[in-house]
Design a protein around this nucleic acid. Structure first.
Length: 358
DNA sequence: GCTTCCCGCCAAACA
DNA sequence: TGTTTGGCGGGAAGC
């Protein structure tokens, strides 16, 4: 039996279980489908869990990650404000300012000590951390907050914002975020959480997983998957049919229903870091242009010579690599999201009405 | 065999 | 004290 036929027969089996159908990324896409609509300003966790047909535990993962990039904010127990994609540039700007305040390294090689220090003072949530008199209690509280998914998400984003690099491997990110801790168990746990974050960001098209297989140590082909960033070359035709349908999936990553109209090419600038800082400064007041889904979207590409220096420095036991869409691209991306979601919802409503009439 | 990441236990935080 | 929140890692799907 062919693998396709096998999968089809599996999918007809009522007991058939597909992990992909339960992925955090897909769940996030559905979450955004439900709530990124006009008139939505509040989200109940129970409501979200019911709508999506998942347990609350999964909703916590999603809202914590989305809250870190400004899409949501906590209103009360079980209740969140929906702020939308338009709030992301401001949130990123704040993250950048925090990172700069914390003297976060932008040298391109993640400096463990600097990143580790983020764990102690990173983000608004931590600014509320109360230093109590009882050190043991305080340490416990701090320790828990330091390890929160929300803070990890913020620090993960800071790595991209403050780094020269276009590609970041999950294990290098985990190493950087762990700082001085060199415990294999802690490493595995951290990478598990980074996978969660990566899947959510992937579903939003903020980052992308490379389909190519370049070993970042040797720059030679290896049998390992990588995560990578968008670029703006014209080579989009092979995916166009899927993209016209609004999404495609690859290597287990299901991408969001809309793709940015333009994002910068990997390594297309001699001084990317300077440009990123400038881009971030422009972000809050940015008035982007965007294209509809008929526009060409960004293809994938991996170029060995663009691999980050730190990536070549140590053998990656975990080899997934990812690139954060450039900051200039984020401007387009988020504006595009706002418009695209709206038009998509209008389209869906029209289809519903047509079906009801017929 | 290795990578990816879902799932749910259970402890901390909160009301 | 009951409920909410969410860290954590086992282990299975996927490749």
């Amino acid at each position: 039996m062919s693998s396709v036929a096998h999968r089809e027969s599996e999918s007809k089996n009522p007991y058939y279980y597909s992990r992909k159908e339960k992925s955090l990324g897909l769940l996030c896409s559905n979450f955004l489908n439900f709530y990124n609509q006009d008139g939505v300003d509040s989200i109940g966790l129970d409501d979200a869990a019911n709508r999506l047909g998942v347990e609350r535990r999964r909703i916590y993962d999603i809202v914590n990650i989305l809250e870190s990039v400004g899409v949501l904010s906590r209103k009360a127990k079980n209740q969140y404000f929906w702020k939308g994609f338009s709030a992301i540039p401001r949130a990123l700007d704040e993250l950048k300012e925090e990172a700069l305040r914390e003297n976060f390294s932008t040298s391109g090689v993640f400096h463990s000590a600097n990143v580790s220090s983020l764990n102690h003072c990173g983000g608004p949530s931590n600014s509320k951390t109360v230093r109590k008199d009882k050190p043991s209690v305080s340490n416990k509280v701090d320790n828990r907050k330091e390890k929160s998914l929300g803070l990890l998400t913020k620090n993960f984003v800071k790595l991209f914002i403050c780094s020269h690099e276009d590609l970041i491997s999950l294990d290098n990110a985990a190493t950087a975020l762990l700082g001085d801790i060199h415990d294999p168990t802690a490493m595995r746990t951290k990478v598990r959480r980074l996978y969660d974050i990566a899947n959510v960001f992937s579903s939003m098209n903020l980052i992308e997983k490379s389909e190519s297989s370049i070993d970042c140590n040797s720059n030679e082909k290896a049998d390992m998957p990588m995560l990578m960033k968008h670029n703006n070359s014209k080579d989009t035709h092979d995916r166009s049919s899927m993209e016209q349908q609004g999404r495609y999936s690859s290597k287990g990553f299901v991408f969001g229903p809309f793709t940015p109209a333009s994002v910068p090419k990997v390594g297309d600038s001699g001084n990317k870091n300077e440009r990123r800082v400038k881009d971030l400064e422009d972000l809050a007041s940015y008035r982007p242009q965007y294209h509809n889904q008929d526009s060409h979207v960004q293809p994938l590409a991996v170029r060995g010579h663009h691999l980050p220096e730190f990536c070549r420095q140590r053998p990656p036991s975990l080899t997934a690599k990812m690139g954060f869409v450039g900051v200039a691209a984020l401007s387009d991306l988020f504006a595009h999201y706002v418009a695209a979601w709206k038009s998509w919802n209008v389209e869906v409503d029209e289809k519903k009405q047509t079906q009801e009439v017929s």
